[in-house]
Each structure stands twice: as C-alpha cells, then as structure tokens.
Design a binder for these strands. Structure first.
Length: 485
DNA sequence: CTTATACTAAACACTC
DNA sequence: TGAGTGTTTAGTATAA
C-alpha cells in the first residue's frame, strides 16, 4: 500500500532482499557541487512549502488557497531538478533518524542538519515511501482510462520513481503480487477488439478506491502530513500528538509506517521525488470541471475540499460536485470495505446517510471512543472517519482495524484477495481453481454481510444499524402481519 | 510474545 | 517455445 516504507531498515534500503544485497541503497552523502544549487533551491522551496502548509494549519484549514499555493510550489520544485530525499535514514544509510537527532540547525531551521546529511540528488536511488499498492493506484489513476496493463504500470512507476530503474526486477513481481492479492485492484475484462497483448488491463475497484485514496493521503506528501504541516520551528512531533491533525488517521498502517515516522523527520526535509510530489501528489482524484490551477490541483481540491469542508463543517469550503463518490471516503485499507459495503448493500441506496450520520459518528466518538465504533458506512466522509479514528488510541485502532477488518473479510488482509480457504485446500492449484469455478466461493458481499453484520451489531453504528435493523424489523413485522392475515 | 501489515522470492499456470 | 502475466505460498521484517 502504502506510503509504505516503514521507518525501518527495510524502508531505507531498496528492499530487504536481493536489492539490499546488491547495494541499491547507497549511503547518504553530501551532494556534489552540481547539486549544491539545487539544494539551495530545495531549501527555499521547502521553506515556502512549509510556510504554505503551516499557514493552512494556522488558518484552521478554512481555505484552500494554500493548496493552490502549495501546488504551485510543488510544481516549481519539480523543476528544480531535485529528486527523492529519504528523511528516514541516517547518513550511514542504516538507521532511521530519531526525533532527538534531527534538531534543526540555526542556519537552516527547515532542513537543519538533515540538509547536510541527506543527499538531495540521490533520491532516485531511494525507494519511494509508497507501498506498491499506492504506486499501482497512482499509476492507474494517472491513466486516461483509469486502467493500465501491468506493463504500463511498470512504466509509470519507472517514470516516476527512477529508483526502480536500477532496482532488482523483483519489484515487478511485487507489483503483480499486489495486483493479484489486493482487492483494490481488479482486472478489466478484455476487449477482444482492443487487445493489448498479454495480460489484462487493471483498474481500481471503486469499492476500495476510498481506501487507496485514504492511504495515499497518509503519505508524507499529504499537505497535512505533520512533517509538512507543522511550523518548521517546532520540534518534531511525536505520533502520539498526531490526533490534532484532522485528516490523519494515525491507526493506518500507512501512517504508522510513514507518517508517524516522518514526524521524526526534521521539518522541511524534502521527501522523495519532487516530481512525485508535484505530479502525483494526489493523482488519484478525479479532476473537477472547473480548475483555476490545473487538473492536478483540481484533483487535490476535489479530494481535500470535500475532505476539509465536510470534516470541518464549514459552509464556506469547497464542495465537491455531485456524484463524487470518491469523496465519501472509507478510510484506508485497514478498515477494508466490508463494513461500508455492508451498510451500503443493506441500507436503502436511495437514502444514503447524510451529514447527520456523520455527526452522529462524531458524537459517538466524543462520548466514548471505542475502536469498534469506527464509522462503517462509506457515506460517512473521510473527514468524519479520519477525525473519528484519529481520536482512537493508536493501539486500539490497530487492533480494531486489523483484527476487526480481518475478521470481517475472513482474511488477515481484509483488502486482499485471499480467497477463503477450504475449497480443496490440499489440491493442486490447478484443481483448486477448477473447483473454485465449479463451486464459486461465497461472494464477498455475502461474506461481508454476514461477518460485518455481527460487527455492526457490536459496533452499534447508529446509521447503519438503524437502517439495517429498521428494514429487518419492518420485514419481520410485515411477515408477522401477513401470517396473521 | 503476538498480531497485523508489507514486502520479497519463488513456483507454477496461463496466455500471447 | 519463450517471455510476459497472473496466482499463490512461504518467509521475513517491522510496528504496536
């Protein structure tokens, strides 16, 4: 998924496997003379970016103008020739930085010692802080038709993350692995008239799109990422204080493995490729019809506008166009689709949850936040979800999101395509597949309904539960009345 | 220590 | 037939 690379050694090195052994992750070094100017430029841009993001925070995010500003800065940054900068690794390339080790220098309060420690030009050799799921997601979303063959996904990743050009080819396997395993991705039925050769086109499953969007929002490139959003002069924030940042869900694996750790990064350190930031900051959101600052920014606006406006309940904020289902965000992978799908599938589609439901969720969270009370309906905005979840204790979130969703999905990875075992488990793969064809497993929906029904019962999510129970009660009542008659 | 998540490697099957 | 693609399993690493 995700912004993925954990703050671990694994994250720092190209991979824990062959790539590491092949020395794909050169130690951090001071940039050479050719990059000096770029570093200076990066510092300036970083200052501007940080200031912009900080301004957004100071203004309580009541306006999106900062976003345009930031986008412009990102765009300019993208032309600075700077590439990836991993903030998580010590100059020796071995250990993540600790918060205490990243005190800004007086000369450069933004970059601090990081500025001297990290090679701004060496980003191409660093693994991007996105999980493969996010990379794939971005690639597909960046495609005009929102669908790509694997080959083009490779190409997109290579284009945007030069690191992979020199990385061992195992990453392609990982891409395919993700495509196959991750429910967020689905194959598009091949159109014989438009044969693309081998393989299929891959697209994003709308059911899970929110999860991916949410995951992407957890990336360090998200303007709300504390690494960018907090004033540069403030000390690095610890993850525990994160809940103050509205859009962040600190319980997501993406947060845990990236955002949370990136908090330890000296403020203003530019992370990873500038191009990535500018071009794929939020390449996942459909552009708005009207855009004063370009499609990319529109995309961001379409995402964050709704995100903010609904989350902050401000009428002055940008409102998405009708039908932007993307903006009804189910948070992240870890919650998976099951709960929301349950609600959606069982609730009356003609009466989607409205803001009252969101409020109800928020109220619930205020009263007694329990991990199990995660908003379960995808109609609940991402803001509400994130705001809600952000109040959950980290550990609780983790347990609830992981175990809960896992239970729902009947898999340890709720968004993955792990088929329910049991069908001729011991048979050879081929026979198992044949058996699966003959006896298709219970549909995800059915599984989700069944499992999530139980969870919903526990969770007491008012909107969903009421909807479901009302319908159930109504049906039972009608049945009884019919029997009487 | 356990659990969840992400990644990598590998084997195998399928398709072009 | 080989290469690319898709699926699955196993193992490892990390964080909480």
């Amino acid at each position: 998924m995700g912004p993925t690379m954990p703050p671990s050694k694994k994250a720092q090195s190209p991979s824990s496997g062959a790539s590491a052994s092949q020395g794909m992750s050169p130690p951090y070094r001071q940039g050479d003379a050719a990059t000096a100017a770029s570093e200076a430029e990066a510092a300036d841009l970083s200052l501007s970016l940080s200031a912009s993001f900080s301004k957004a925070e100071d203004e309580e995010l009541t306006s999106l103008s900062w976003l345009h500003e930031s986008t412009d800065l990102l765009n300019s940054f993208s032309h600075s020739g700077l590439r990836s900068v991993s903030p998580l690794q010590d100059p020796d390339g071995q250990h993540p930085r600790s918060p205490s080790s990243s005190s800004p220098s007086p000369d450069d309060p933004l970059l601090g010692d990081a500025h001297s420690a990290y090679d701004l030009a060496a980003g191409a050799n660093r693994k991007p802080p996105y999980s493969f799921s996010c990379l794939i997601f971005m690639a597909i979303e960046d495609a005009p038709n929102k669908r790509l063959p694997v080959k083009d996904i490779y190409g997109w990743i290579l284009e945007h993350f030069p690191y992979f050009a020199s990385a061992p080819t195992g990453w392609k396997n990982s891409v395919r692995h993700n495509l196959s395993l991750n429910k967020c991705f689905k194959k598009v039925d091949k159109d014989r008239s438009q044969s693309i050769g081998k393989g299929s086109l891959w697209s994003i499953d709308p059911e899970y799109r929110h999860n991916l969007i949410q995951a992407l929002k957890k990336t360090p490139y998200h303007p709300y990422s504390p690494g960018l959003a907090t004033p540069s002069t403030s000390p690095p924030t610890l993850p525990q204080t994160f809940h103050h940042s509205p859009p962040l869900w600190s319980g997501s694996p993406l947060f845990r493995k990236n955002g949370g750790v990136l908090l330890q990064v000296p403020r203003g350190v530019i992370q990873n490729g500038a191009r990535v930031r500018s071009q794929a900051l939020f390449p996942v959101i459909r552009p708005l019809p009207v855009s004063p600052v370009g499609s990319r920014t529109s995309a961001i606006r379409s995402s964050l506008g709704d995100y903010l406006s609904r989350g902050q309940d401000s009428p002055s904020r940008y409102s998405p166009p009708p039908g932007s289902e993307d903006l009804q965000d189910d948070h992240t992978y870890s919650t998976a689709k099951s709960p929301s799908r349950l609600c959606n599938s069982q609730a009356d589609p003609s009466s989607p949850l409205d803001d009252d439901d969101i409020i109800a969720v928020e109220i619930q969270s205020d009263v007694k936040p329990e991990p199990r009370e995660i908003p379960l309906d995808s109609h609940v905005s991402a803001a509400a979800t994130a705001a809600y979840i952000s109040q959950q204790p980290l550990r609780g979130q983790r347990r609830s999101s992981g175990a809960g969703a896992g239970t729902l999905a009947g898999s340890s990875l709720p968004w993955t395509k792990n088929r329910a075992r049991g069908i001729s488990d011991t048979l050879p793969l081929k026979k198992r597949r044949a058996a699966a064809v003959e006896k298709p497993p219970e549909s995800d929906d059915e599984e989700m309904k069944e499992a999530a029904g139980s969870l919903l019962h526990l969770a007491g999510v008012r909107a969903c539960l009421n909807n479901i129970t009302n319908r159930t009660a109504k049906g039972q009542k009608e049945q009884k009345e019919a029997l009487r008659n």
